[in-house]
Design a protein around this nucleic acid. Structure first.
Lengths: 229, 229
DNA sequence: CGCGAGCTTGACGTTGTTCAACTAGAGTGG
DNA sequence: CCACTCTAGTTGAACAACGTCAAGCTCGCG
């Protein structure tokens, strides 16, 4: 279930890049028609293969960005938290989504018509540079992910994912919003092996695992495992 | 060995996007200072980790774009032929190359100062849209490559690579510029298995292999293998 | 002629997926 | 309130897929 709302940028508590760009341009906020949509956990925010019509900005909550592969096996590239562009590719001239995004918790997004964005970045260099920066960063993280998935063993891959999560939550202790299957998709590992590896790391005193609550005890060692892969 | 030359855009036979953008803008060609560089086969055109200073355009020849992984094992993402942007990422705000590019044959490239490019695309929307399009396409091909590398077996992966090459050369018969090791890097397969698979495909009447000259006999079957993976 | 790079083949071992069966907890309806 | 079902997690065993090692080959080049 999701419901939609029209909220004027003036009333939105989040002063995003787009808001700033509009301010800088001295434009009237009425030219963009931001559509706010609320998604429940597990709902698709955008779907691989469908056409790109709006720029999507994550206002609240979190979501995973993944590519849908063969036999409905997915690979999660990264997890998004506010404020980030969900439809990053959509700023560029791509007709269809080459990935999907699904809410990890109840989330709130803002959709803005593509033409507005285009007008905006053509006028406002600063906004364009911000978009470019975000995009470049995202691409370079994807490239290093390719190496990780291809050349590290499952121990190294899951170590990577755990370190990634701890960095994302900015804490060595965090409560995953991911199921074990989803953690597997983040590391391209089968669910069964995720279980085995977490148990292994716990036995080795690297982790503390209580349900979804994970505490990294020996970070140095975890980083070592991630490197050696 | 490589040598450099200053060639004015007026004297360059290749009327690239940048040339066109300059024409459209009604600018003087002297504001850009295109540096033409000639590389031998096997030479690095740009190196992962080094800083991005210029936009690079492939004028003549061909090159492979690859990411350098662990234990000097690489993964080739795609092969570039004229006219394409080698430093595609460099148009965006990325300080360092997240990949390397190496010449597959003697090649000729053109380097243009980043600031010039930036000025140009800020002024010229059409040029910006062209860049965006090229970039979006490149990213979506990378995403589908991730799935291929991760979820297809080696038969499917090498079938993919062979079909990719035949499309690149626009012919079911082509002479690879790649060594078998390099073909392996394009498919994330060990050199030994590349040999075995090519022999297998030949025995099955799918391919004809004479040295580097490959002829695809049964394309339908090859496509089937690529799909089933 | 000898050397080295690229290619080729066989044997072997590791890695990680898959299957199958079982457990625990949460939600549902009689 | 208890049986149920459904999902998520857990464990073991078997198997297949690939990479790796080792050895030998061929061809071009100094």
């Amino acid at each position: 279930m999701k419901f939609k709302k029209n909220i004027s940028c003036n009333d939105c508590k989040l002063k995003c890049d787009i808001y700033q760009a509009l301010s800088e341009s001295g434009k009237d906020f009425s030219i963009i028609n931001p559509l706010h949509v609320y998604y429940d956990r597990h709902e698709n925010i955008c779907k691989q293969g469908s056409s790109v019509t709006h720029a999507i900005y994550l206002v609240e909550g979190s979501a995973k960005l993944f590519i849908e592969g063969l036999n409905s096996r997915n690979i999660t590239l990264y997890i998004m938290t506010p404020q980030s562009y969900i439809g990053l590719l959509s700023f560029f001239e791509t007709p269809y989504y080459s990935y999907s995004v699904k809410a990890l918790e109840d989330s709130h997004i803002c959709m803005i018509d593509l033409d507005c964005i285009k007008k905006l970045y053509i006028e406002n260099h600063n906004f364009l540079l911000k978009l470019n920066k975000a995009f470049g960063k995202s691409v370079s993280s994807i490239l290093s992910k390719i190496i990780t998935l291809n050349q590290k063993n499952i121990r190294g891959r899951i170590a990577d994912s755990l370190l990634y999560l701890s960095k994302l939550y900015n804490n060595d202790q965090f409560t995953m919003l991911l199921s074990l299957k989803e953690l597997g998709e983040l590391s391209a590992i089968s669910e069964e092996n995720v279980v085995r590896l977490l148990a292994e790391f716990r036995r080795e005193g690297i982790l503390n695992v209580e349900g979804k609550k994970i505490t990294i005890i020996d970070k140095k060692l975890l980083e070592k495992i991630s490197e050696v892969g």
